[in-house]
Each structure stands twice: as structure tokens, then as C-alpha cells.
């Protein structure tokens, strides 16, 4: 069987398994980031282009907590999303909330501008080469899976983000709060008439979406260079993921996130030069054949 696989793929099977696994790990980041975007778009109708900057802020806040307050990885995993989420709440109240009545484009431009400004401030303050952040002692080391060497930390990233994605999906689909959220998406005035404070719910949803980005940032800090442009590199791909999954579809963004991570991983074996482009090729094809995305409602 394995030999058969090797013959048809032209790549040694252990290497192929390794690449699938690595693709899944990258997919975990795509899934978490696109999840936050989908939640925000679903309820606020805002295409949150600040998401990359907020992912980067999560990583930086983790670094600051360690360097300035001596709070390690586990503390940062809870505190960084709260802190960055709080800045999201402020941004939503002060600026984004004024744009709900206008076209999508205005929200996109505003959040894009805010993202550039945040990035600029961090670049001025910390430079571009980045800061060191260590893998926590409990998760360092690796398992030898036979076909590849699997860092424990990467395994943790996959499991943890799966749990987070599932939890978010459950909250939105299976709880009363989620029902309010979904109802407010459909018809906000009606939900408000039932005595639900919709503006506050919207603010907190934005905060939660931002917190998800920051959480992904903390997860990324030990394995990627913590630098101001780390979000920019990822966010364009994540937008493609959201578009392919179907704007606003929670489950769609999670499944597409993991799926495209795997596709990208395989491209890295067969045609490495194209690995940065393959997701956009898929996006173009999906937009041509299913404009609402794979899981979106037309």
C-alpha cells in the first residue's frame, strides 16, 4: 500500500505524511484567524482588515508580559487575548460603530488604515527583525513518529485550536447567547424589541473576534519570528480562506482553514515556488463557480 502511494505520488511516503501533518498545523492558524474574521463579518458586516495587526499584537503582548511583568506563556494565553480584545472594544466603540449604516467598503478602509497604523507604531518601537520568545518548558521537545519528528508544541497548537474552534461553533450554534447573535444578524431591530442590548452585543462580538486573533498570535509567538509584519504575511491568505469558505460561515471557515493548510503543505513538496499562490488560484476558481463560497449561502 505504502509503496503504491509512493509510486503514484513520486514522493517518499514518510515525507508525504510529514507534509500532510505540517499542512494541518498551518491550517490550525488559518482556521483560528478566519474564524475570528467570520464571526465579525457575520454579525457586524465589517470586513476586519485590522485582524493581522491584532494577531501581531497578541504575539507582542505575550512578549511584553514576559519581558516586563515576568508573566509566562500560560498567563499570556489568557491575558493577551483579554488585553487585545479590550483594545478591540475601544476601537469598535470609538470608530467602527459609526460606519454600520454605510457601505462595506468604508469599514474595510477604516480597519485597513487602523491596521497599518498599529503596525507602524510597533515597527517604530520594536524594529523589524523581531523579538525572541521561547516555547514553554512543558511543551518543548518532540515525539519521534517514525515518519517525522513532531515537535510537541505543534501538536499542542493543533489540538488547542481545534478545541477553540469547536467551542466557538458550539457557543454560536447551540447556546441562547448564540441564538441572540444569529437572530441579531438576521434582524437587529426585532431582537432589540425583545429587550436585548444589541449594540453591546455587537461590541462584545467584535472584542471576541479580536481576542481570537490575539490568541492565535500568542500560539504563533514561539514558532514564528515575533515581528510587526508577521500579521501582514498571514492575513492575506486568511482572507482568501474566508472567501473560499463563504463569508460569515463559521464552520466553513474552520474546515477551509485546515483544508487549505493541507493543500498548501502539499504544494510545498511538489511545486514550492507556487506555495504562496496556490490558495489564491483556488480562491479564483471557487469565486467563478460558487461565488458565495464553499459553505456560504447564496
Amino acid at each position: 500500500m505504502l509503496e503504491f502511494l509512493e509510486t503514484i505520488t513520486g514522493v517518499p511516503t514518510p515525507l508525504l505524511f510529514g507534509q500532510l501533518l505540517l499542512g494541518l498545523i498551518n491550517g490550525a492558524f488559518y482556521a483560528m484567524l478566519s474564524l475570528g474574521l467570520a464571526v465579525i463579518f457575520g454579525l457586524l458586516n465589517i470586513i476586519n482588515f485590522t485582524h493581522g495587526a491584532q494577531f501581531m499584537m497578541g504575539a507582542f503582548v505575550a512578549w511584553m508580559l514576559l519581558a516586563w511583568a515576568g508573566i509566562g506563556y500560560w498567563g499570556a494565553l489568557i491575558l493577551a487575548p483579554l488585553i487585545v480584545g479590550a483594545t478591540g472594544v475601544v476601537i469598535e466603540r470609538l470608530m467602527i460603530s459609526r460606519l454600520y449604516k454605510l457601505d462595506h467598503l468604508y469599514g474595510l478602509l477604516l480597519t485597513f488604515g487602523i491596521g497599518l497604523m498599529i503596525e507602524g507604531v510597533f515597527r517604530n518601537e520594536f524594529g523589524s527583525s523581531g523579538l525572541p520568545y521561547r516555547i514553554p518548558a512543558e511543551l518543548s521537545g518532540a515525539w519521534d513518529l517514525g515518519f517525522m519528528f513532531m515537535p510537541i508544541y505543534r501538536g499542542w497548537v493543533v489540538v488547542f485550536s481545534l478545541v477553540i474552534c469547536l467551542a466557538t461553533w458550539l457557543v454560536i450554534e447551540k447556546t441562547r447567547l448564540g441564538a441572540y447573535l444569529r437572530a441579531a444578524t438576521e434582524n437587529a431591530p426585532l431582537v432589540q424589541a425583545f429587550g436585548v442590548n444589541v449594540p453591546r452585543m455587537i461590541t462584545l462580538t467584535y472584542g471576541a473576534g479580536v481576542a481570537l486573533a490575539a490568541l492565535a498570535g500568542v500560539l504563533a509567538a514561539p514558532i514564528y519570528s515575533v515581528n510587526p509584519q508577521m500579521g501582514t504575511n498571514l492575513i492575506i491568505v486568511v482572507f482568501a480562506v474566508v472567501v473560499i469558505g463563504g463569508m460569515g460561515s463559521i464552520l466553513g471557515s474552520v474546515i477551509t482553514g485546515f483544508g487549505l493548510g493541507v493543500v498548501e503543505g502539499l504544494t510545498k513538496v511538489y511545486w514550492p515556488e507556487a506555495s504562496a499562490t496556490v490558495i489564491f488560484v483556488i480562491m479564483a476558481i471557487v469565486l467563478l463557480t460558487r461565488p458565495a463560497g464553499l459553505f456560504g449561502r447564496a
Binding site: L15, G18, Q19, L22, G23, I25, N26, M148, R154, Y224, S225, M230, N233, L234, G265, K268, V269, P272, S275, A276
Partner: peptide
């Protein structure tokens, strides 16, 4: 490119 693990494993 931010993730090089795939290339490193190759």
C-alpha cells in the same frame, strides 16, 4: 513565507 517547517523537513 513564514512557515519553513515543510522545507526544513524536505
Amino acid at each position: 513565507t513564514t512557515d519553513f517547517s515543510s522545507f526544513l523537513v524536505q
